[in-house]
Amino acid sequence: MTRHPTVQMLIRLGTTVSSLAITMFGLVLVTFFIGRVIPIDPVLTILGDHARPELVERLRMELGLDKPLPVQFWIYLKNLLQGDLGRSVMTTNRVVDDIRLYFPATVELGTVAMIFATVAGIPLGVLSAVRRNSALDQAVRVFSLVGHSIPIPVLGLGSLLVFYAWLGWAPGTGRVGVGYVGLTPSVTGFLTVDALIAGDTEVFWDAAAHLMLPAGVLAYFSMAYISRMTRAFMIDALAGEYVITARAKGLSPARVIWRHAFGNIAVRLVTVLALTYAGLLEGAVVTEMIFSWPGIGQYLTVSLLNADMNAVIGATLLVGFVYMLLNLFADAAYRILDPRV
């Protein structure tokens, strides 16, 4: 029996939403319990190691840590459903506000890095596959391998040394120069966008320049992966019978490569790109630390080390949500790129 297209769409939507809800619930459950069973006393973060016993007990009760774990979880879940992720003991802000503050920094960095990586990675991968085993292919493979093999700290510090300290082309660490901090009102949280909204081109260029180095480092790392995957997909595609047929039909090499071969790897490539982007939005902890970039990765790490569990769970949920969203996006993209799906 064939269902009505609207019914089909509703079923598909229902399945997607329920799958999202179940995954998020699982994520909350696992993160919450891991957060509570790790052998670090969260009260230590708030009161320090020297706190007097009566104060420790008082705070433990205030935080509800004296209650059984299932009760604590139920309270957390109830608050979460009302959009309350709790308050970070480290920053004293609501976790929701912290996420609003730190996540845009990561999105801005990750997006620029992703654009760099895609613009460079895909053409290099395609060229490498087309000129398989040529000197160009070897050069691209070595270049990619180096990018993927060098540890990020080396790449980050190395790039700071060369482009900032030696050549003086790039500014140092942070999102913006000291003289520009706090000048632009936050509207979107993306400093470059906010600077343009405010009409402050000086801040825009400074912020853009601060983006280049960390984004370049992340892009190099991600580009290496994208170009290698593109190359592998393309080699596979170029050996396909439809490509041989296209060539036999006398089509131009560019049309064969881009329309017939590349068009057929697009679905697989979308998955690679979506996951790479998700990885970048998760917050590149090491890059953020080297470049003093106040992003979600650094926030999550510092929170974790301080056993600031509301912040940890909030940031983890965000990362999980981003992954799921990008997976959904990839799924949707399949349907557009491949009518058979």
Binding site: W169, A170, V178, W205, D206, A209, M212
Partner: peptide, 16 residues
């Protein structure tokens, strides 16, 4: 091109 953007940022090397 990247170097151009770096320079466009008016790289300053002194604190205000």
């Amino acid at each position: 091109l990247a170097a151009g953007v770096f320079r466009a940022g008016d790289v300053k090397a002194a604190t205000p």
